[in-house]
C-alpha cells in the first residue's frame, strides 16, 4: 500500500511562473526598458497562449539521484479545456512497479474553488480522493510538485505577484525576466516556493528557464525547457529538465506523439477511466 505522489512533471514546470535569479543571463532595467510589459502583462500573455482545446501525448520521465542512479517512467497524458475548467489525466504505463497508477485533476477557473484531484492506486485497486492543498508535494518521486504538473505551461496569477525585472536570454532566445512572489506566506508554505525567476521568450510567450527558491530563501531548483517547436501550429515544449539543488536529484521529461487535433473523449477524465487504465 503505497501512497505515491504522483505525477510527473512535465507539465508544470514548464510553465511555471517561477523565476530565477542566477543562471539566467540578466540585464538591468534601463530607461528604454522601463516600457517593458509588466509582470502581470507577461503572465497574461503566457496564460492566453494557444494550447489547443485538447492534447494527448506520451511522456518519458527519467529521474536521477545524486549518485547517478536512474529510474524511468513511461506515461500517457491527456488534457482538455472546458468552459470553466481544465481537466488533466496521466496514466503510468511502465515500469511494472508503477504501471496502472493514474492521476486525474479538475482545475477550476474560479480561484475560490479548490481543485478536485484523484489518484488510482493499483495496489489498492481504489481511486483515492486527494487533497488539492498537497499541491506543493512532489509528484511520484519526481522533482515537480502537483502544482507544477497542473499548471502545465501556465502561471498562477492567483498565487503570485509578477514583476518584470529585466531582459534575459536563453540559448539565443531573447526574453523577459519576471520575478514571482507568493501573495501570502500561507501560499508560499503551501507551494514550497518563496520566489521564482523565469525567462519568458517574448516572441512565443513561453518560459524557457526558471529558478525557484524554497521558503527559507535558498535556491531550490532550476527548470530548463528545450526543443520548443510548433506542432500542429502550437508552440510545444518537448524536453524539460528539472534540477533540485538541495538534493542533487534531477528529473528529465521528454514529450512525444503530441497531438492537438485528435479528439479526446470526455469519458477520459473520469474516475472510471483512471481505474480501467489504458
Amino acid at each position: 500500500m503505497k501512497y505515491p505522489r504522483l505525477l510527473s512533471c512535465w507539465v508544470g514546470i514548464l510553465s511555471t511562473p517561477f523565476f530565477a535569479l542566477t543562471g539566467l543571463a540578466q540585464e538591468p532595467l534601463s530607461n528604454a526598458q522601463a516600457t517593458l510589459p509588466t509582470g502581470g502583462q507577461v503572465a497574461a500573455h503566457i496564460n492566453s497562449r494557444d494550447e489547443g482545446e485538447a492534447v494527448s501525448r506520451k511522456l518519458s520521465i527519467v529521474m536521477r539521484d545524486k549518485r547517478g542512479k536512474t529510474r524511468k517512467r513511461e506515461t500517457m497524458s491527456y488534457r482538455k479545456y472546458y468552459a470553466g475548467e481544465k481537466r488533466t489525466v496521466i496514466f503510468y504505463l511502465a515500469p511494472k512497479n508503477i504501471r496502472d497508477t493514474a492521476f486525474l485533476t479538475y482545475d477550476y477557473n474560479t480561484p475560490e474553488r479548490e481543485d478536485d484531484q484523484w489518484l488510482y492506486l493499483p495496489a489498492l485497486r481504489k481511486v483515492r480522493r486527494i487533497s488539492a492543498a498537497d499541491r506543493g508535494d512532489y509528484f511520484l518521486g519526481t522533482d515537480m510538485t502537483y502544482e507544477d504538473i497542473k499548471l502545465e505551461t501556465r502561471v498562477s496569477t492567483a498565487d503570485f505577484n509578477f514583476k518584470t525585472v529585466g531582459n534575459c536570454d536563453v540559448d539565443g532566445h531573447p526574453g523577459l525576466h519576471i520575478e514571482g512572489t507568493p501573495k501570502t506566506q500561507a501560499i508560499a508554505r503551501e507551494l514550497g516556493y518563496s520566489k521564482s525567476l523565469s525567462c519568458v521568450d517574448r516572441q512565443i510567450w513561453m518560459v524557457r528557464q526558471s529558478q525557484f527558491w524554497d521558503i527559507k530563501g535558498a535556491l531550490l531548483k532550476t527548470v530548463t525547457i528545450a526543443n520548443i517547436d510548433q506542432i500542429q501550429g502550437i508552440w510545444t515544449q518537448q524536453n524539460i529538465n528539472v534540477e533540485n539543488h538541495k538534493t542533487g536529484h534531477s528529473t528529465s521529461l521528454s514529450f512525444a506523439e503530441v497531438d492537438y487535433q485528435s479528439p479526446v473523449p470526455d469519458t477520459m477524465f473520469t474516475t472510471n477511466a483512471i481505474k480501467r487504465g489504458l
Binding site: 503505497k2 505515491p4 536529484h249
Partner: peptide, 13 residues
C-alpha cells in the same frame, strides 16, 4: 501514518 523519503524510494509506514 505513511511517509516517503528520497524521492519516494524509501517508505515508512
Amino acid at each position: 501514518v505513511n511517509h516517503t523519503l528520497l524521492n519516494d524510494t524509501l517508505e515508512l509506514r
